[in-house]
Design a protein around this nucleic acid. Structure first.
Lengths: 199, 199
DNA sequence: ACCCATTAATTGACGGTGTCAATATAAGCA
DNA sequence: TGCTTATATTGACACCGTCAATTAATGGGT
């Protein structure tokens, strides 16, 4: 051990969070162990307990922050006032698609109910806000649809999530990634435009 | 140790498979450990290695069998000749929905790429056959659609998978489980009927 | 400046896991 | 019978999460 390492780290909590995220991106969620994270930061194996009660607590904190990042991205997209109404509806699906394809390991973590605590109020809050945005935009565009508003929202989000998840599992791999010159994910969204009755 | 227990189990492989499935249903995939399964069958902790190379091998074998069960269910449904064309298309989504809601832990396992080996040829074969059924039925009903056949198939399967997965994660929980007197999953499928252009 | 309560980090232990090597046992066949 | 092979056991190793006991440093009150 280097003699100049101070006993107190001063901001170990953030350092642990960063190290965990880095391990997650590099080697998947199974690599994000309490001990590995501590090792990465250069601290003893039980040090993290002062900042994260247990592994679930650490992973839940990461998930909250990631959902928050997605929400921020969504709100940035919706801040662009030159969008068509259908583009506004697709802001959330597009954000999820982009995020999922860019950070596969993070995306996977977000839906691991055996690892993160969905009862955590802060995670409920941010996912609810994303969902509310989606419903809001749907309501704006199709105020009187043949379909219940929640049904459309759930169907749309489900489709996007299912696509990202299955694709990351290697499903549909033999199918070309592009169809009619467009990426598959674009075609998937086009399918949903038929539901919305807009082009 | 009971003295009458024979050294050789004669069909340990099937016994391990059964025990694993039982643990999976009861306590989730994290409870399906090599040692717990061996314990359940009453055999030493390293006995399973003779029949399953490692944990991934055991879980992959289970996943293959479960996908096979789903395929069998699908083919039984499609054997009913009194179905409308849209009902035929929905045979696979319905089968997945029913399976996912009935066996949440098994369903979760099917999509855990960190636990099962999707490169296994037998798993590719059975998922491909399910996918081919879906494409076949879509082609029968909408031979010339504005959408690529694979796109519709992927979109439909994605929507169903995403719905089951997110619902099991507690998402959409505050939304009523029924809409207009129909279960939510039925409403979701109705949304997709709009895409198919049929009622 | 000192003391002391509080916070933060270390060390060591416990039971659990997967996996491997060495060993023991039984089966099946020549 | 005896030999080969398949199958199961035992024991070890390196991980893991978590906890209790201990040590180190901080910071506020006197």
């Amino acid at each position: 051990m280097s003699k100049d390492k101070p006993f107190h780290h001063r901001n170990l909590k953030e350092a642990l969070h960063d190290a965990a995220l880095s391990l997650l991106d590099a080697d998947g969620v199974s690599a994000v162990t309490i001990r590995a994270v501590a090792r990465e930061v250069g601290v003893s194996h039980a040090a993290p307990v002062n900042h994260y009660k247990d592994r679930q607590s650490l992973l839940t904190t990461i998930a909250v922050q990631q959902f928050q990042n997605i929400l921020t991205d969504v709100e940035e997209r919706l801040g662009n006032s030159s969008l068509s109404s259908v583009e506004r509806i697709e802001a959330i699906p597009s954000a999820m698609l982009d995020y999922g394809l860019k950070y596969p390991n993070r995306y996977q973590l977000l839906w691991r109910r055996d690892l993160i605590d969905y009862a955590d109020p802060s995670i409920l809050e941010v996912t609810d806000r994303i969902y509310d945005w989606l419903c809001e935009e749907i309501q704006q565009t199709i105020p009187e649809s043949t379909f219940d508003r929640d049904t459309v929202a759930i169907a749309l989000w489900s489709m996007v999530h299912g696509y990202v998840d299955m694709r990351q599992n290697g499903m549909f791999l033999e199918k070309s990634d592009t169809v009619n010159g467009l990426p598959r994910q674009r075609a998937i969204l086009d399918v949903f435009r038929a539901v919305l009755g807009v082009n």
